[in-house]
Amino acid sequence: MNHDAYDDNYIRAILNSVKSIAMVGASPVNVRPSYFAFKYLAQRGYDMIPVNPGHVGKSLLGKPFVASLGDIDRPIDMIDIFRNSSHIMPVVDEALKLSPLPKVIWMQLGARDDAAAEKAEAAGMKVVMNRCPKIEYGRLSSEISWMGVNSRTLSSKRAPIPTQGMRLSLNRMSVGGGETAASDRAAKNKSEP
């Protein structure tokens, strides 16, 4: 697996299939990138779980912090690691002990550990490194185009009408093809304003 560049379809399939995301290193400080990403993904309907031993007893946007992955009471689809490259391996080792096994290990922008990635892939997990799920979601839904970002997708279909804090659809027939519907599903599960 090449981790220098990812196909849109690979990323889209991940963002479209996962429902619960444990964010390791989530910060309650509202100017940290992890806080932005946590809030953004929660607003798009993902079941977010903040993992940070330093903040147990507090909660992040109403979700209680847990100390470690082992403390989570429900199956986790994806682990989003907001830690430096040097702290990735222990998280992957911990993830490998979970049952059921998470489907995806995602390392944040700036974080990369190829050995940890190989280990996770050998166990059947998908891996994304050095990317931000908020940015990728924004890009593949074209929401991020409002900031002049190259979404690398095209569509001749009418854009979905934004509802509830710009929750847009990932459902663009992009240059890579592959329809997706994670946020549509999320929108359906939430009551409309």
Binding site: N9, S145, R152, K157, R158, A159, V175, G176
Partner: peptide, 24 residues
Amino acid sequence: MTDRHPGFSTLAVHAGAQPDPTTG
């Protein structure tokens, strides 16, 4: 399936644009 990379002329016409959500 891997991504298809559209050609320059296709991008010149389409990139960034999508039918308006409200009016079409």
